[in-house]
Design a protein around this nucleic acid. Structure first.
Lengths: 127, 127
DNA sequence: CGAACCTTACCACGATCGTGTCAAGGTTTG
DNA sequence: CAAACCTTGACACGATCGTGGTAAGGTTCG
């Protein structure tokens, strides 16, 4: 057999066996398994483990953040939603006159009401 | 004055004042300040606060994750590093004597290789 | 067979996240 | 001036993260 078991992979990459399982659970590096369920790390996985360490050390990024980036990369819907939010129009809605806006400075009730209508119109706009 | 103070903004958006400061510290929404340093939330910020809440609720994402996505978006170097890691060649180095590797468990290896190539082509297709 | 591996599933524990609250002090306004 | 805001900073606290350990049980190999 030619692939490394978890402890062997750990000692050659500098990770702990515990962390290798953690990395796997984060979806970052998933080694194949032997018939009995043993994790088998091939050269590809070892390479990725080493570069993953570099990535973390050099870019001040955490394991879970890398995991999230991976999720972003795979979940197109999610990344589109985020992208949409980041690019949300900073322009104030023009068809909602400032009157509503000013009016709403009175007391809490009116404030809430105005906010509700504003919210509604904004939602209609974004649809 | 055309903007809301923090507690007003809180009650119209459903966030707490505490969380508004938290959101600001996460770099997500930074309202302008009055001369005395009071946070002033305009309609634009209120809009973003509401859509931020929707974003979190509908996409099972955390505030810090959105913050990280923003960081990714701004830090081109970081996102390039991550991108590089994700696309790291799954192909084994050819100049390293492949003998060991190739000998070693051919059936599985071929499966792996096939999967890797498939993955690569898929990725190329989506670009 | 027995030693030395591997597996999953827990307990532990400091660090950070998400959130509230409180304190000490400046600002606005009736 | 005093009430009612705002500010930053701190303490608190359950939940999760990052990491180590241990226990109970299956696998591999000399």
């Amino acid at each position: 057999m030619d692939a490394l078991t978890i402890h062997e992979a750990a000692s050659t990459t500098g990770w702990s066996a515990r962390m290798l399982r953690y990395v796997e659970r984060a979806g970052l590096i998933e080694p194949r398994r032997s018939a009995a369920g043993y994790r088998l790390y091939g050269p590809e996985e070892l390479q990725r483990l080493r570069t993953l360490r570099e990535l973390l050390d050099q870019n001040d990024v955490s394991l879970t953040e890398v995991g999230f980036a991976l999720r972003l990369r795979r979940d197109e819907e999610l990344s589109a939603a985020l992208e949409g939010w980041f690019e949300e129009e900073p322009a104030r809605p023009v068809d909602v006159p400032a009157a509503d806006w000013l009016l709403w400075e009175q007391d809490k009730h009116e404030k809430l009401l105005a906010a509700a209508t504003l919210h509604a119109t904004q939602m209609m706009e974004t649809r």
